[in-house]
Amino acid sequence: MTVLPEGEVATPFADVAPDQQFAADIAWLAQRGITTGWDEPDGTRTFRPLTHLNRDAMAAFLHRLAGSPEVTRPATSPFADVAESDQFYDEILWLHQQGISTGWQESDGTRTFRPLEPIARDAMAAFLYRLADAEDAPVTTTPFTDVAPTDQYATEIAWAARTGITTGWTGNDGTALYRPLEPINRDAIAAFLHRFDTRTG
């Protein structure tokens, strides 16, 4: 048995080194069955940590985090761009049924989920806030200089910071940044979900 240096964690993925940032979170994600990664032609499994996480995969991750509850399929999909034959259809349905995602109202009257778009950091905060059934009061200040109290999801982002789910970045001027509209990589979502699972508020 190989003994790793302190602070290093082995994962089942060939593309995640034991000393890599978020390796422990990725290992936890795999242990919980929230991710399985990809089978590669050489017989290894990969996680693709620096790939953006799409919205359909986010639905799958949250559904598994919640224990993979049973989903009742409606007569028709609530989203014009999500079909019954699509991967993660049930998981997206569950997200909608739980009120975690409502998608977008389109000009033709339909609603869309945009499953193959990367999920942005502000929407991620909103999804986790709704999954937690949190009820924070609207914020008047935020801990991040790039998130104004009037911004969409400002309350949800402030909640994510308060509960330790996110720490953001320290800018060159020493201020805290959240970068709300940036897409999330798969390694970072492992960290967010792990912190969500162990949050204290």
Rank of each mutant, 00 (worst) to 15 (best):
T76I: 11
D151N: 13
E40H: 11
Q20D: 09
H96I: 05
L177C: 07
L95Q: 05
T72K: 14
G103Q: 01
Y89H: 12
P138R: 15
D39K: 15
N54Q: 07
Q97G: 12
I157P: 00
L95H: 04
T72W: 00
D19I: 01
R199Q: 10
D19Q: 04
D42H: 02
T110W: 14
A126P: 01
L62I: 11
D187H: 08
P115L: 10
L65T: 09
L62E: 05
I165P: 04
R55F: 12
L65N: 08
R114P: 02
R199H: 11
D136K: 15
I34C: 05
L181F: 14
D90Q: 13
R195G: 11
Q152W: 08
P41G: 09
Y89S: 09
D108V: 15
Q97V: 08
R179K: 10
S107L: 14
G103S: 01
M58E: 05
F79Q: 06
A14C: 02
L181V: 07
D15V: 03
A134Y: 06
D173W: 03
E182R: 13
P78A: 01
T76L: 13
N185K: 15
A27R: 02
W159N: 05
E91D: 14
G164W: 00
L50A: 08
A66F: 07
R199C: 02
T155N: 06
M1S: 13
L95W: 05
F144C: 06
D25I: 01
L177P: 10
P180I: 10
L95D: 01
L29N: 03
G99K: 08
A27G: 04
T170Y: 01
F127H: 08
D146C: 09
T2M: 07
W169T: 08
Q97D: 12
Q87R: 11
A80C: 04
A60Y: 02
P49L: 10
S68L: 01
T200P: 02
T200L: 05
A190K: 05
T150W: 02
T102E: 06
T141H: 10
A23P: 04
D81Y: 00
G174K: 00
Q98D: 07
A27T: 03
A14E: 01
T175Q: 09
P18L: 04
D108L: 13
V71N: 10
E8W: 11
T35F: 15
T198K: 14
R130S: 07
W38Q: 15
L53W: 02
A27I: 00
P5A: 15
T11C: 02
V147F: 03
P115D: 13
L177H: 10
L4E: 05
T167P: 06
L65R: 11
A123Q: 09
E117A: 07
R114K: 10
E84K: 02
N172R: 09
I165S: 01
P118Y: 03
N172K: 06
T170S: 05
P18T: 03
I189G: 03
A134K: 08
D15L: 03
V147E: 05
A188V: 11
F88I: 12
A148T: 05
V16H: 00
F22A: 04
A126N: 03
Q21I: 08
R111C: 04
G43N: 02
P12S: 03
F196K: 13
A191S: 14
A66L: 11
P69Q: 08
G171P: 09
R195L: 13
T145V: 15
L128N: 06
